[in-house]
Design a protein around this nucleic acid. Sequence first.
DNA 1: ATGAGTGCAAAGTATTTGCACGTAC
DNA 2: GTACGTGCAAATACTTTGCACTCAT
Lengths: 149, 149
Amino acid sequence: MKVNLNQLKDEFKRYLKRRNMKITQSRLDLIDLLASYGRHFEVEELVNWVASRTDRRVSRSTVYRTIKLLQEFGAIKEVIKQNNRTIYEFVVGKPHHDHLVCVECGKIIEFVNEDIENLQDEVCREYDFEPMNHRLEIFGICSECRKQT
Amino acid sequence: MKVNLNQLKDEFKRYLKRRNMKITQSRLDLIDLLASYGRHFEVEELVNWVASRTDRRVSRSTVYRTIKLLQEFGAIKEVIKQNNRTIYEFVVGKPHHDHLVCVECGKIIEFVNEDIENLQDEVCREYDFEPMNHRLEIFGICSECRKQT
DNA sequence: ATGAGTGCAAAGTATTTGCACGTAC
DNA sequence: GTACGTGCAAATACTTTGCACTCAT
């Protein structure tokens, strides 16, 4: 699934306008960089990668602030919370999915299951609960790791 | 569902023996206290509660260390990871369940859904992934909070 | 021109760890 | 008696924040 980056950035600009926030180079850079990163990431990783990729310096603070902003905008999500690490994902143009996480090698496998989604909605209706987002993490051991006992 | 505390503590003692660990007063106290606490908890909360409940002092370090141990033993689980908070639950004698978390008031609603569990197992088989545990958190707004708009 | 954004260093949180002492075995 | 457990304070890791300066509007 290919994302139209320009369209995305336009939406982001409109989003910023609506909130009376400024369209800054750092914010646009980060959305570009995230779109091209194409993997799950942690903040530290992103800070370093951004430093290596661009001449422009983007401080750790700005990365944290922009990550929060992009989460509200809906472009990225916290997908895994393991120990004290938080792993994010750029979700634009991807259908909703959940994750299998290998506790041995750290591999992350994405899966889509409509039935699970539907059942969740059903549960929410039952409790008159309005869902905003959810996170399903299945921790276990992947096939490769099981082989090399 | 009533837990047989003595049986649980015996199992825990055997578990410790097997791992060549010592059966200490702090460890037994904590399992007692957790069993009687009966709510979701955070570490800080537990530390304070333990201090108010017993004459015996149990240090924050020991609480952290014992929580980790009891997780391995299987008596408690990290059920919610939100922002930088970790919420635990004493799970002995409770069937597996997942959680709805109100982002407005913090209320936690537990639900059991066998179908979701089965579908998860199916997904794992499909990816030849051996699940050890999982966590499904649905964040949203509860009915009370929606009423008082 | 004005106020929001940024970078930096400092402050917060949550959790872990080194070490001297205590206790289970 | 020996080794593991505990308490304390310090260290670590992650994230947020105050402030002076910069930049978008």
